[in-house]
Nucleic acid binder design. Structure first.
Lengths: 225, 225
DNA sequence: GCATGGTTTAATGTATACATTCAAGTGGAA
DNA sequence: TTCCACTTGAATGTATACATTAAACCATGC
């Protein structure tokens, strides 16, 4: 028998996945409305699993289920971005500090270092998509190393909410060469077990990244994404 | 016509409310399993809205929907408590700092001060339930004054998750006289516009509260609630 | 006696039919 | 023409019937 690609996921789980893809790919643009029956037809299933998926994604802040008006894909405002970056700044900085306190063995930090290498390679190749993917992986792994599962979950949710906006600004901003130095410094502090430095360096890194992004959006009059 | 008490909420919304009440009241104990059909019968509605409510509450970390095993009311472990308190410590301290930066007018801080007065009154009367309610109100209002809606939401979710555990320890711990002094100091720093002090005082307050709670649970061998 | 394979069954997962509700359209009267 | 009440309809919200699935049970053979 050939490899069983599908592990018989429920339609509801498939709907969550598909809807997320449609949202992040822009196939369902921010601010647009869609009837449950339309989405059900599009995904080739009944309204029930689609509705369950929509309610789940509503809880994750990606869309809104409105009576008789369909689901609305939520746009992200600059104010939203500021809120989200502030939350991420606090929780990731805490994660960096906690990670430093854990005195991880070198091999436990290898995944984190690979993401940095990937970023450097992507930067050298001028591949912004690859850089963004590696940057995401860095922040995800940093949250994981902090050892707080709730922080991991919250960071993932916040990351999803700003994903569209980051994609838009990816080609507008200068190449993030400073970012990589910051990342290396954070890892260095974690390896040295210096919690305060890990925290403060990452905090400054996130704060600077926020400023760049917000200014970019303001200068280009992009108040909603 | 007499006053219309009910504003025709959907059964799904009613189910969310009722299930939350059942969980917090202990009618559905932590760790217990319940079939969707049982809960539906209990609430006098069909499985559909109950299921939707269960999926929502699953997203909020209060229960787990498991195929053919019913919904399990999630217990809270000491490790969970530590995670939650760490998140709350970071986000509330940030809120305190942001609130200080906003230079609120005196009247905007009146709600916060009322919660402190309520705590002092409850403490004088030895009414621990009233103290806990006012303490909750203080932390909720502090998050609100921080001006970050996502922090408000996250703090509410985390608060819900530890509600049972706090209720259990409420009568085990010494009367929280130090707590009130801390609260007053935080408000004083916010009023003075001293962000760093507001942050640090609240951080210390939360950290101390966490220690008290964790030690209490450990000493009493309460590893799951 | 134990392992093994099929059958039963109880519960979720899904489809669908129906109820409800709000908004838009329609018609009549001022 | 405009306003208001009524009708109508389209979409969600809900109930229910059905499909699916995995665990438990039972029988059968070694």
């Amino acid at each position: 028998m050939p490899s069983q690609a599908q592990k018989s996921k429920s339609n509801s789980a498939i709907a969550v996945e598909e809807l997320r893809n449609l949202i992040f790919s822009g196939a369902l643009p921010a601010g647009s409305d869609h009837l449950e029956s339309e989405l059900a037809a599009r995904l080739g299933m009944s309204r029930t699993p689609v509705r369950e998926a929509a309610l789940l994604l509503e809880g994750q802040g990606l869309l809104q289920v409105r009576a008789r008006k369909g689901v609305r894909i939520l746009p992200i405002s600059i104010e939203d971005m500021i809120e989200i970056y502030d939350v991420l700044t606090e929780l990731e900085s805490m994660s960096a500090a906690k990670a430093a306190e854990k005195r991880y063995a070198a091999e436990d930090l290898s995944t984190l270092e690979i993401t940095i290498s990937d970023m450097e390679a992507a930067l050298a190749a001028g591949d912004r998509e690859a850089w963004a993917a590696a940057d995401d992986a860095f922040h995800t792994e940093l949250a994981r190393l902090g050892g707080n599962s709730r922080v991991v979950t919250i960071a993932a949710l916040m990351g999803d909410q700003v994903r569209r906006a980051k994609a838009v600004t990816l080609y507008m901003r200068p190449l993030p060469t400073q970012s990589n130095k910051d990342h290396r410094s954070v890892v260095e502090a974690i390896r040295a077990g210096d919690a305060k430095t890990a925290h403060d360096v990452h905090y400054a890194h996130r704060t600077a990244a926020k400023e760049v992004l917000i200014n970019l959006l303001r200068q280009n009059r992009m108040h909603m994404l």
